[in-house]
Every structure is written in C-alpha cells, then in structure tokens.
Amino acid sequence: LLGRRRALLDHLPYDCSITDLENITQSIVKSHLETCQYSSEDMKRFTWVQYSPEETRAFQNKSAEWMWQQCAHHITNAIQYVVEFAKRIAGFMDLCQNDQIILLKAGCLEVLLIRMCRALNSNNNTIFFHGKFASPQFFKALGCDDLVSAVFELGMGLCRLQLSDEEMALFSAAVLLSPDRPWLTEGQKVHKLQEKVYLALQHSLQKNGASEEKLDKMVSKLPIMKSICNLHVDKLEFFRLVHPETAYSFPPLYREVFGS
C-alpha cells in the first residue's frame, strides 16, 4: 500500500493536484490546532510539574473504582475534542451519520493515542494527568499494569518519531478515516478521503525533508494502537463485571463510545 501511495504521489489522481493536497493539509492542521486541549506552549509550561512521591502514593492507594472514574472522565473530555476535530475535516460531515459514528467509535481512542505524545515527557517517562506529570506506577490503582505500560511504550515510540503538528494532524485524520471499519455503508467514500489525506501526509513529509522511512514508521504503530484499544475494551468489560454500578456511573459519552 505504501509503495502504491509513493507511486500515486508521482502520478496523482486526475481529481487531486498538489495544490489540493496543500489545501487539505492546511485545513486539517487548522482543525487539529483548534481542537487540541493543550497547545505545545501550554505543555512546555507544565513540563516540570511532577507528582511528588507522596502524591503518587496517595493516588496508588485510591480504589480502582475512583481511579477508573477519573480516567473515564478525562478520556470523555478528550473525546469531545476529537469529535470536533472530525467535524472540521473536509468531507467528514458529508458522510452519512451512521458512518460518522462508526468512524468515531472505532477511531477516537487511536486519535487520542496519537495526540497523547504531546502530553508525554519522554525524558522521564511521565504523562500529563490531572494537572501534573505522572509515571506509569501512578496508575497502579487501575489494576491494568499491562495496559498502562503498553500505552506508555507506544507514547515513547511516537515521541521518538518527533512528529510535527502537521504530521500529527494528518496522521490523526488518516487513522480516523479508516475505510476498513466494520459496518461502514460508504466505505469507498471513506477510502477516497483517506487516500487524499495519506497523499497529503506523504507530500508534507517530502516537502519538509523527513526521512523516507518516517511514514512507514508511523504506519507501523497502527497494529499496536489497535491492540491497545482492544485491551482497553477487555479491561472495561472486566471492570463492568466486577463493579457494574460504578461502570454505569461513567460519563454517558464514554459508555456510548466504548459500549458494545
């Protein structure tokens, strides 16, 4: 597929010029920046605010239910920004609403995982959570060490790629517009949109002198992202069995997106 995309960039489809790709890039970057919860400048300001060992211990000693509630709340908040991002991608709102919902349900956590690298401090393996930077051990009360470490590992891998806002924006849009999500009614339309976004990403990488392998490295993260999303759903299902009432009190949007 990637080889085909490279060839496509040399022989663009008849309905897509370099100017089109640059317009797509510009509009998606704008949407991304308008819907990011924190600007890069905000994150730089927060970088040195770490949880103390005492604060970390206090969070570790919270109940699983309390910690799940906090995380569900933060994820729900972040999902609302992803919905806004999707709405501003040219062509997304032209899809039927059934497909818009399928794409968001299937792709919003993957987009959050990409966006997460802005909230990571790769120097000390911490993530911005609840106002300060937290280590993986901070989330012990969730009882999901494997999920947490997989998320951190992916985040560090994405940080190593040093994605620019432009690359992050286009990659997020491409992931959201995955035509292989089950039950899509207009898969071909989604496929065409994704193709253009990937071409725009390829063009942007070439223009900015990125290495040939950067796109391959970005795309190679997709299976890990998918497995993290599946693991999250497994953990949620197990949590729901053990604490049905707490799970029922999670934000309705969270339950809607991650319900079966």
Binding site: V83, E84, I101, G259
Partner: peptide, 20 residues
C-alpha cells in the same frame, strides 16, 4: 439512533467542546 444519542448531538450541534 437512541443508542448513540450523545454522539448524534455532538455531531449535529455547532458548539465547541469548550462551550459544552
């Protein structure tokens, strides 16, 4: 539609998440 009423609402309304 009932199953995804919040997503429907978010997709339909024009407010930004900051205002929600």
């Amino acid at each position: 539609k009932e199953k995804h009423k919040i997503l429907h609402r978010l997709l339909q309304n024009s407010t930004s998440p900051v205002e929600l």
